[in-house]
Nucleic acid binder design. Structure first.
Lengths: 110, 110
DNA sequence: GTGATTGTTCGATTGTTTTCTAACTTCAGT
DNA sequence: ACTGAAGTTAGAAAACAATCGAACAATCAC
């Protein structure tokens, strides 16, 4: 068992439950559609708003039919696998998808 | 939850346990290294030997530290997710990795 | 400071997964 | 027909995962 496989199993496990995959895909799409990519930083009002999905937890609670505690748990799993990074500002959580891991997924089968 | 996400969760679940990912990677590498790709059919002795990994189950039993029944179970999970197709000739199982699903994995995040 | 809002943590429950052994079936060789 | 090898299936134990509500902590809005 190589290190690579160890990490990949962890990543795949994080994406292996439907609700968690849905959560991840939401984060992924929100980030994409908000035009908050690194090369559009200057078109945003503040730099902070440009680093990922603002109010990710709140948004997820609003559109997924799961309790807050369950969403909290799933978000932690995604973080744990390295798929997303979350930061807190006050009460509010923002998330950023880890592009490095996205590339790992895309390329692990050559 | 789109159909696509439903299928992807199933695929990721199949790859989410270390032994099962190892099994899949073995199949994937064996198939690759045996030169049994579609465009090298004529360099093989018989056409049958060229369609995937011959004696996949037997080979897996020989190199993985799991009981035969456990390997049988994991192989079924891989089949169930559509990642591999297995065929039987007599007592012996041969497997073929489903390239379509490999492409799905590579491209599901654009 | 009080009260509402955000998110986390705990404990319980329910269901799923991993793995084994043992019993079975099917096929191959003799 | 008998024996052995290749896989499968069934049953069970143990570990793990998903989910919720309740209690909590931190922060914001007045």
């Amino acid at each position: 068992m190589t290190m690579k496989q160890y990490d990949m199993a962890k990543i795949f496990k994080a994406l292996s439950s439907e609700p968690r995959l849905e959560l991840f895909m939401n984060l992924y799409e929100w980030e994409k559609n908000s035009g908050q990519s690194l090369n559009s930083l200057d078109s945003c009002e503040t730099q902070k708003e440009c680093c990922g999905t603002e109010k990710a937890f709140t948004k997820a609670c609003g559109c997924m039919d799961l309790s807050r505690s369950t969403i909290s748990h799933h978000l932690k799993e995604l973080q744990n696998a390295g798929l997303v990074t979350c930061t807190r500002s006050g009460q509010v959580i923002s998330c950023k998808v880890n592009e490095e891991v996205v590339e790992l997924i895309k390329h692990f089968l050559e």
